[in-house]
Design a binder for these strands. Structure first.
Length: 274
DNA sequence: AACTCGGGGGT
DNA sequence: ACCCCAGAGTT
């Protein structure tokens, strides 16, 4: 099949996204972590400001977890910020691991995506957009290994970096989840579906957010970001879970909070042993 | 395999 | 109200 994806990508790829300008490993890693379950426009809005403050692993590690978690702002899933700081510390101490999935918060997809973008590594990462494109092209649900093979087929002639970004951009801007624009699709001629089909991998339905424990955590995190607050003013159960995740360090030096419990310490009579 | 983990925007 | 989002870690 003639490669129509490459010219489409050259013309319609989202080359202006701020992180696309760099092949710096740290810059690309930060972008990928921020993009976990988070839409592109939300990341684009804060990316340059974040990178100006945390331009390198050394700067990030030196800034400490509280600064990173605070700067994360309202991006959501603040554990990502905590893990990113931990990753920066490991990189400073031990150097970059050959497999980035050794870093906290970096899984199969992110490790492959960073390697592809920075080193043109041939490993294929599968995320939601690429999976959707492949499942529609083949007209059936795919295991990860099958999706990888599909990407190699569709992306023939593209270098790994361009292959990854072209497939993602296609999924994000043309082969969208709800209403694909098949009339604008460069590979519609080899697509078995040309629309949506019932067998597509479905997102696991999230638990209702309004009224959830997650929302309570979000409320406490928002309060902690503002500034000092006494622990007694916060939801104790939520605060305990934040301490478990290393997120209450956002308040280090600014508030009176209990220290995280030591392993093996005996629980007291308080809320959940704290 | 199923759960948990934020938050915002689109429909 | 429900769906969607460049996932990862834990159980």
């Amino acid at each position: 099949m003639i490669g129509k994806l490459a010219p489409w990508y050259r013309e319609h790829g989202r080359h202006a996204l701020p992180w696309r300008a760099s092949r710096d490993r740290w810059t690309v890693l930060v972008s990928e972590v921020m993009l976990h379950q988070t839409q592109v426009p939300r990341v684009a809005a804060v990316f340059d400001t974040f990178m100006a403050r945390f331009p390198t692993p050394a700067a990030t590690a030196a800034a400490g977890p509280a600064a990173v978690i605070t700067a994360w702002g309202r991006l959501g899933y603040p554990r990502r910020a905590r893990w990113l700081w931990e990753a920066s510390l490991r990189i400073v101490q031990d150097g970059w691991p050959s497999d980035l999935s050794e870093l906290p918060g970096v899984g199969r997809y992110t490790a492959a995506a960073v390697a592809a973008q920075v080193d043109d590594d041939d490993r294929v990462g599968i995320e939601v957009n690429i999976r959707r494109v492949c499942e529609r092209v083949l007209g059936t649900r795919l295991a990860e290994s099958e999706a990888e093979e599909c990407v190699r087929e569709i992306g023939k002639g593209l270098r790994p970096r361009d292959r990854l970004l072209a497939m993602m951009d296609l999924g994000a801007t043309v082969c969208t989840a709800r209403a694909p624009s098949c009339d604008r699709c460069p590979i519609v001629s080899l697509c078995a579906t040309r629309g949506t089909h019932a067998d597509e991998t479905k997102r696991r339905p999230q638990a209702r957010y309004v009224g959830s424990f997650r929302q309570r955590r979000g409320t406490v995190m928002a309060r902690l970001r503002v500034g000092p607050v006494a622990a007694a003013e916060l939801d104790g159960e939520v605060l305990a879970s934040l301490l478990d995740d290393g997120l209450a360090e956002v308040t280090r030096g600014r508030a009176h909070l209990p220290r995280p419990p030591r392993r093996g310490s005996s629980p007291g009579a308080g809320v959940r042993g704290r």
